[in-house]
Amino acid sequence: MTTQARSAGRSWLWLILLIPYVALLWLPFYNERMPAFAGFPFFYWYQFLWVPVTSLLIYLVYRGLK
């Protein structure tokens, strides 16, 4: 199997990167103050939580396509 055929078969992996994109653009979902975590409103810690999650997803897509 050629490299192009393998990567074409796994092109659905790119869709995983849409998860953080949609999760952060859907503002009514996290536009709240509660629940607070360590004094930070939900609005802030939800966004900060997505930084390592997005990094992990990018790594998984990279490893899946490589």
Rank of each mutant, 00 (worst) to 15 (best):
Y62K: 12
L25M: 15
F40L: 13
F48Y: 10
R33N: 14
I19Q: 03
T3H: 07
P41Y: 07
Y46I: 05
P35H: 04
F40H: 12
L60I: 06
G39I: 12
L15Y: 01
W12I: 08
P28K: 11
A38H: 07
T2H: 15
G39Y: 12
L24W: 04
A38W: 12
M34K: 13
P20D: 00
Q47L: 10
G64K: 06
F37K: 01
A36V: 15
E32A: 13
V61G: 00
A36N: 03
Y44M: 08
M34G: 04
L24D: 00
M1T: 08
F42W: 09
W45E: 00
E32N: 09
R6L: 14
A8G: 07
P52N: 11
L18V: 13
W45G: 05
G64H: 08
L57P: 02
W14K: 02
A38I: 06
F29Y: 14
M1G: 12
P41S: 13
V53G: 09
A23R: 06
V51K: 02
L57D: 01
A23Q: 10
A8I: 00
V61K: 02
R33Q: 13
W50C: 06
W45M: 06
W45F: 08
Y44A: 13
V51R: 02
S7G: 05
L27T: 10
F43M: 12
M1L: 10
L24M: 15
S7D: 07
L17Q: 03
M1H: 14
L25G: 15
L13S: 09
V22S: 02
L18N: 05
L27S: 08
F37P: 00
V53Q: 05
I19R: 03
L49S: 13
Y30P: 01
M34W: 11
G9S: 15
F43I: 09
P41I: 06
A5M: 11
A36C: 10
I19L: 14
F37S: 03
T3E: 12
L24R: 06
T54H: 02
L13W: 00
T3M: 10
M1F: 12
I16S: 04
I16N: 01
L27C: 04
Y21T: 05
M34S: 14
L15W: 03
L60A: 12
L27P: 01
W50G: 07
V53W: 09
L49C: 07
A23S: 15
F37N: 01
L25C: 13
Y30R: 00
L56R: 00
L25W: 15
G9F: 13
V51P: 04
A38R: 14
L18W: 09
Y46S: 07
L17C: 06
L17R: 01
F48A: 11
T3K: 05
F48C: 10
Y21Q: 03
L60R: 10
L27N: 07
P35F: 14
